[in-house]
Amino acid sequence: MAFGPFLLLATLEGLLQAAVLTLTALGLSLVFGVMRVVNVAHGEFYMLGAVVAWWVASMFSLHPAVGFFAALVISPLIVGAIAFASERLILKRLNYDPESTIVATIGMLYIIQQTVLLTYGPDARPVSAPFYYRIQLPWFGYSGYNLFVIAAAIVLLLAVWFVLSRTRLGLIMRATQFDREMAQAFGIPIERVYAFVFAAGAMLAAIAAVLIVPIRQAHYLMGLDPLLLSFIVVILGGLGSLRGTVIAALLIGLSDGIISVFFSPTLAKIISTLLVTLVLVFKPEGLFGAKAR
């Protein structure tokens, strides 16, 4: 294939990757930014979102779109509720100590993953896309649903941005992020904010998963990859910086497809992981984040 069309395909794929990654990483970033908790179980909330989506969609035997949109609403709610409960039962009791919460979320990772294995089983299961439309370009074909995912992610991102910057809720969250003690002194119920943020972070991962599950299947081990990628994005973008997260997700998503044209994909992963690690070591505020206070 000629280079031009090739680049177009890589870009489309990169945008799709970036769209899903932004939503997932945003959840991780939000939780870290506000609560200073590194949620290693984040990928499992993503997986849970996909599995619940399969479960919801398979209950509706009507048009696939009905099942899909039902899943888009129900799945994040269920995942959010589970995240809320685990925050209350586990993280709160640890007083959000950074190191203890990492260990605890590793434990949660295994608990969620293995419970899904016991109940849902080891198979990869597909969810039908709400619609099937194949766009035939002169050089290759592309799925119309993929473009829908990109559009949906942009709308959701705008919504998140609106909530964070234009509503009282966002103000409270930002205040908590900025200075926990001060916020408490001003009468902000820190604990409730934390529980809400943790649930919201998980819900963002779940929404990303529902969007992607018609393209990739629901499987109980699908959480690890998005977790590592989200880490990379959040580190590059600067821990806790939303704007940085979006830029970094675009960068990673787009470059991933293009780099692997020139290198073996494994080598590309090695290089990108190493680069990101070095960013964290030598520029811990990230490439796009503001300097830490």
Binding site: F6, L9, A10, F140
Partner: peptide, 11 residues
């Protein structure tokens, strides 16, 4: 083996 998307290999 860890790859979850293949479109970019197809060209």
């Amino acid at each position: 083996p860890t790859e979850t998307s293949f479109t970019r290999y197809l060209p």
